[in-house]
Structures are given as structure tokens and as C-alpha cells.
Lab assay of single mutants.
Amino acid sequence: QTIHNGDQTYHYDNPEEAIKVAQKLAKIYNLTVTVKGNTVQVH
């Protein structure tokens, strides 16, 4: 599972963990989380 947060990319073995982290980032920075296959984008 990969999270793209602007210019930063994070890799997680656990998809659920990746989505949790993405949602935390989204709340902190007031962003949107988009899940596309194995990629979670925060923008």
C-alpha cells in the first residue's frame, strides 16, 4: 500500500494501516483521501 501526500510517499505492508494514516493526515491538514487500488492519495 502506498500513500502519496503531496511530494511525500509512504509505503505500508498493511492496507488498513495505510488508510488510517492517510485519514489522520487528511484531518490534520484538512485534505481529501482518495483510494485507488493499492495507492492512497492525500491531497
Rank of each mutant, 00 (worst) to 15 (best):
V35F: 01
T9P: 02
A18W: 04
Q23G: 06
Q41N: 08
V33L: 03
A18Y: 02
Q8F: 15
T34S: 08
Y10Q: 03
I3V: 12
T32L: 10
A18F: 03
I3S: 11
H43M: 07
N38S: 11
T9D: 04
A18N: 00
N38R: 05
T32N: 10
N5G: 10
I19N: 09
I19V: 08
T39F: 06
V33P: 00
V35A: 02
L25R: 00
T34P: 00
K27H: 07
Y12Q: 01
N14C: 10
L25S: 00
H43C: 12
T2Y: 09
T39D: 05
V42D: 00
N30A: 05
Y29E: 15
A22P: 00
Q23Y: 05
K36P: 01
T9I: 15
D7Y: 14
Q8E: 11
Y10G: 02
P15F: 08
I28F: 12
V40K: 00
K24S: 07
V33H: 00
D13V: 06
V40L: 05
Q8A: 11
L31A: 10
V35S: 02
N14A: 04
A18E: 01
Q23A: 13
H43D: 03
E16A: 09
T39V: 12
T32G: 04
N14W: 05
K36D: 11
L25H: 01
N5E: 11
V21L: 05
H11V: 14
E17V: 10
Q8V: 14
I28Q: 10
T2A: 12
T9M: 13
H43S: 07
A18T: 02
D13H: 06
T32Q: 09
Y12E: 02
T2I: 11
V21F: 10
H4R: 10
N30I: 05
Q1Y: 04
H4A: 08
A18K: 00
L25G: 00
G37M: 03
G37A: 04
G37E: 04
Q8L: 13
G37W: 02
Q8P: 07
K27S: 08
L31E: 09
N5A: 12
A26Y: 04
L25E: 01
N5Q: 12
T2Q: 11
Q41L: 13
Y10S: 03
K20V: 05
H11E: 12
V21W: 11
V42P: 01
G37V: 02
K36S: 14
D7P: 09
Y10P: 02
T39L: 07
T39I: 12
Y10N: 02
Y29N: 14
T9A: 05
N38D: 03
Q1R: 11
Q8G: 08
V42H: 01
E17F: 07
Q8C: 15
T34N: 03
T9G: 03
V40A: 01
L25Q: 00
I3Q: 10
Y10V: 03
D7M: 13
G6K: 11
I19S: 07
K20T: 06
V21D: 03
D13W: 05
H43R: 08
H11I: 14
A22L: 04
N30T: 04
T2K: 12
N5M: 13
K36T: 13
Y12V: 03
N38F: 02
L31Y: 07
V33T: 03
Q41A: 06
P15G: 05
N38Q: 05
V40M: 02
V35T: 03
V33N: 00
V21A: 15
D7H: 15
T39Q: 06
K27P: 09
Y29L: 15
Q8R: 14
A22Y: 02
E16G: 06
V35R: 02
Y12W: 03
D13M: 08
Q41S: 10
E16I: 07
Y12A: 03
P15Y: 10
Q8S: 10
G37F: 03
T32Y: 07
I3M: 12
I28H: 10
T34Y: 04
N30C: 11
K36I: 15
V21Q: 12
K36Y: 07
H11A: 06
E17Y: 07
N5F: 14
K27C: 15
G37R: 02
A22H: 01
D13S: 12
H11P: 02
I3D: 12
H43F: 06
E17N: 04
K27A: 09
G37H: 03
K20C: 15
L25V: 01
N38I: 04
Y12G: 02
L31S: 06
T39P: 00
L31V: 13
Q41K: 10
Y12T: 03
D13F: 05
I19D: 04
V21Y: 06
Q23F: 04
N38E: 02
